[in-house]
Simulated assay, not measured.
Amino acid sequence: MKKLVTILALVMLFVSSFAGLKVSHASTNDQGINEKLGLPIVVYGEALSDSQKSEVADLLKVDQHDQVDEFTVNGQDLANYIGGNPNSNMYSSVKILHKENGAGLTIDIVTPDNITQVTKEMYSNALLTAGVENAEVLVASSVKVSGHSALTGIYKAYDAKGVKLDEERMQVASKELDVATSIAEEEGIDKDKISELLTEIKKAIAEQDPATREEVEQIVEEQLNSLNIELSPEDRQRLTDLFEQMRNLNIDFDQVRNQLDDLTGSIQDLVNDEGFWNNLKSAVQSFFRSLSNFISSLFN
């Protein structure tokens, strides 16, 4: 029995070593106060209890920063920014780290098991629609929630710091999130597949610059066919309505496409990161050497 426990301990050691490699790759370790970009911003959902708020602060690693600007988001904020229900309970919380121009937008859902409907790709798409860029955004919740209120928290963070996002773009971004999550749920389609669809439609709009609703509808149909996604006529109409509304806003789709390309490329960068894979290879070799030595000792 003791031997089995030891083997299991070695296995857990290997797993934790691999997890450590991944975490270090996405680390946001504190480097002091950046006087140019300002303090990190943390926005807590108002419905959190004191203990839940403390848990979220730990999840977002708030204590790794010397100072942060902290705010709370509530149902009235939801109503003010995107016309939602002012009586809504807000649980999703966010941390925002502003980055230099050209750094792009990165999203990390710290508690993926508790954000049940919104993927990080959906957040990315919606935030780019709203005009948010050059930032690292972390989302967390201590209870299971859909994840929609995190968007309002991000809007409030920017507003509180004097950055005015376009109201129409914020509302369309919220609608985009609603359309994406509801289609995924109602049609039984993988959320990542829906995110990919939204991304490809935006890229196609940037390339083709449609001038009419009919051309937008054609782009939607082309991308649905390209990704082999079957939707009801009603949901096809909803997508067309959404992107027609986007087309009528002052959105630089070329810039959005570049940001989306950067997001896609970051995944490929990890795949091509020789240092990461060398570290992983070393961890694997070290684990199996330890395991081999232990098993050999059993027979000596």
Score class of each variant (00 low, 15 high):
residue 14 F to V: 00
residue 16 S to N: 08
residue 29 N to F: 15
residue 32 G to R: 07
residue 34 N to Y: 11
residue 39 L to K: 09
residue 42 V to A: 04
residue 46 E to K: 12
residue 49 S to H: 12
residue 49 S to N: 06
residue 59 L to A: 07
residue 59 L to M: 15
residue 71 F to W: 07
residue 82 I to D: 03
residue 82 I to M: 08
residue 85 N to A: 06
residue 87 N to S: 08
residue 88 S to G: 04
residue 91 Y to K: 09
residue 92 S to E: 12
residue 94 V to D: 07
residue 94 V to Q: 08
residue 97 L to A: 07
residue 99 K to F: 11
residue 99 K to S: 12
residue 108 D to E: 15
residue 109 I to G: 05
residue 111 T to D: 09
residue 119 T to E: 03
residue 121 E to D: 14
residue 122 M to R: 00
residue 124 S to C: 06
residue 137 V to S: 02
residue 140 A to H: 10
residue 140 A to Q: 07
residue 148 H to L: 11
residue 149 S to I: 08
residue 165 L to P: 03
residue 171 Q to L: 01
residue 172 V to N: 02
residue 173 A to D: 03
residue 174 S to C: 05
residue 179 V to P: 03
residue 189 I to Y: 05
residue 191 K to E: 02
residue 194 I to M: 11
residue 195 S to V: 06
residue 198 L to Q: 14
residue 201 I to H: 07
residue 202 K to Q: 13
residue 207 E to M: 13
residue 208 Q to A: 14
residue 209 D to C: 05
residue 210 P to A: 07
residue 211 A to H: 14
residue 219 I to R: 04
residue 229 I to Q: 04
residue 229 I to T: 07
residue 241 D to W: 04
residue 248 N to K: 15
residue 249 L to S: 09
residue 253 F to Y: 13
residue 258 N to K: 11
residue 261 D to E: 15
residue 267 I to H: 07
residue 270 L to E: 10
residue 273 D to R: 02
residue 281 K to A: 14
residue 290 S to L: 13
residue 291 L to K: 00
residue 294 F to T: 01
residue 294 F to E: 02
residue 298 L to W: 11
residue 298 L to K: 05
residue 299 F to G: 01
